[in-house]
Design a protein around this nucleic acid. Structure first.
Lengths: 348, 348
DNA sequence: TCTACATTTCGAAAAGTTTCGATGTTCGGT
DNA sequence: ACCGAACATCGAAACTTTTCGAAATGTAGA
């Protein structure tokens, strides 16, 4: 019980004795509690300084809790996004990290001025996020650069924008998937095959059309420009693109859509024209989201391993955050054909 | 120095005595230190659970960062869940809180033993979460009690389990919605109307059937038991329930489904029987998720304001966290009819 | 002035965490 | 068989934080 500094670090007890207060009071001063009188607080702080008291353990070590990764999706929570998020969450449980979600840089009606890319990046870094995983993000190069400056690694899933240099990303074998789709439809006997596309500037869309074209050309068949529509990856685009294709003087007998959601739009365009799927028109999707199972008829589609992509993205992001170097800045997971009820041999 | 549990909260000392180890060891188990043997750890964790130990104070307290709310969904990320999440996120931006997501108490393949409710609650509290928002949760009463002990307020969206006492929740006017659906179908001229249901024990499902029945009985029409099926709120249940109803000797001319996803299953069941919707069968959904727009034909459905429900839940949770008292422990937002293409007058 | 009640300040005791040494245990090497 | 280094396990004691009640102080009304 010698209150004197024995050896080594000063403790609360030595400070308390020196200041003439109890250990509890010193503790309270250290932790900024309110129930200490101003002069007492000042005196204790003086003594703390004299004794050069330092906190013992890595107490208030920042980044204390479990590591946290920010998950960003700009385009709302569609079926596609949902499956990726699920994969990220599953992987997060395994890896013991927590996931916070946000809809990208703030630009809501409430804020008068949209948040600047650098402010956004600073906010993420200040919150102690280890990394960012972005889904099909339209994060601009500015956003990515700002995160880079803030030393927060990013992994983008299936980037819409063409491959930026030094961007880490996870995708699927879109070209091979497009080819598989083409081959499936060709094998059924189709010769006039159209493509109802998504965003034409998106790398994944270009690869999917490219795959389809390659499959057709391998059979000596063309993919005429009027057989390819382009808009967005959503239902409305499918409806309009499908209408455009079906109203052609010589319409295709099969339509490969850029996504499941687009495919549903195509099916509806066919239905309002009194055409039955698959008897009068074969339709294929891409993604194999839950929509594909639940469509009427259920969709034949190209499966992307969306939840695995999410998991891979998270693992990659954490490896980047740990300072490890990545072998490849872009990995592609394999796609595969899933045959359901929306494709059949052409009529007649 | 009676180590026995005097009264009030159990302490480390009581747990230690009960487990036959020192206080220090119990502390180490709680903090996940490595220098505890596996069997000792298991034994201590057992006793912790028995005594329902909870951490005393918000140790690794928040204070600095932005407040954080944990969003829990057990049933995977469906269309329904997705829309609610979107609403929560939008509100979160406005309120300046961050949202972390998880799939409820851990019970993955990796962990040998599923996480106990109290351990889960402790983890949430220790992470400094201000509140929990649970979606259609199958959080048991045990989970809720554990959160309560840990002083973390919870708001449940559309609880499946019947109203537990003192549970704060947000829902929709399911009974009125069911009635509106019935009235819509009656107005079209339908007399034989079936219900393809979701989880029969769920309060919302019961209210929806009840509303339909009320509408029918107001016209002096019955809702015979064989016209009501029940299973889950998913596609498969809709397919099977639809099949069951359509294979009846005198099948209904219209089917009201417990959710949009169920409705899609019903539509598929009709399609494989060569029936067209809405010419041969009218189908209604419930929820008005994105599925409804994208179905073929687009679904007539009862709209639940899902994203508003998410927003309300978050605001309520934060108010509880701030210690304010809530006027009502259960609020219901209004539903409304959305007419699309899946309903029409009965044939003949 | 005195009483009743609220507020502030403080510390003893209780509760929880970490350090560090005591006590095995395992596994080569001799 | 014996030694010893390396490791694993555990608890006593040291240290810090929090709770709760006591004491001091203030405040208003009788």
């Amino acid at each position: 019980m010698d209150n004197g500094a024995r050896r080594g670090r000063p403790t609360l007890a030595t400070v308390a004795a020196s200041a003439g207060v109890s250990v509890a009071t010193v503790s309270k001063v250290l932790n900024g509690r309110s129930d200490v009188a101003a002069d007492t607080r000042a005196r204790v702080q003086d003594v703390l300084q004299q004794h050069q008291y330092v906190a013992p353990a890595p107490r208030r070590a920042e980044g204390h809790g479990t590591p946290t990764v920010e998950l960003v999706f700009d385009y709302g929570l569609h079926a596609y996004t949902g499956e990726v998020v699920q994969g990220v969450l599953d992987a997060a449980v395994e890896l013991g990290v927590t996931i916070t979600v946000s809809s990208g840089p703030r630009r809501d009606r409430v804020q008068p001025t949209p948040e600047s890319p650098s402010a956004w990046a600073r906010r993420i870094a200040a919150a102690g996020r280890r990394a960012v995983v972005a889904i099909t993000g339209e994060l601009t190069a500015t956003h990515l650069a700002a995160l880079d400056r803030a030393k927060v690694p990013v992994v983008v899933i299936d980037p819409l924008n063409p491959q930026l240099a030094r961007l880490t990303s996870v995708g699927a074998t879109n070209f091979a998937g497009g080819m598989t789709a083409g081959e499936h439809l060709l094998a059924l006997g189709h010769r006039r095959i159209g493509y109802a596309g998504g965003t034409p500037t998106a790398a994944c869309n270009q690869a999917r059309v490219g795959g389809l074209r390659a499959a057709l050309e391998a059979q000596g068949l063309p993919l005429p420009p009027e057989y390819v529509t382009a808009a967005l990856f959503d239902y409305g685009s499918g409806f309009e693109g499908g209408a455009q294709l079906l109203d052609l003087p010589e319409p295709p007998t099969a339509i490969f859509a850029g996504s499941d959601e687009v495919a549903l739009g195509v099916i509806e365009a066919a239905r309002v024209r009194g055409m039955r799927v698959p008897q009068d028109l074969s339709v294929m999707g891409f993604d194999d989201t839950q929509l594909a199972r639940m469509a009427s008829p259920p969709l034949t589609t190209i499966r992307q391993p969306l939840s695995e992509m999410g998991a891979v993205a998270l693992r990659t992001a954490l490896r980047l955050a740990a300072g490890e170097t990545i072998d490849s800045h872009h990995v592609e997971l394999a796609t595969r054909l899933v045959v359901r009820g929306s494709t059949a041999a052409p009529a007649g």
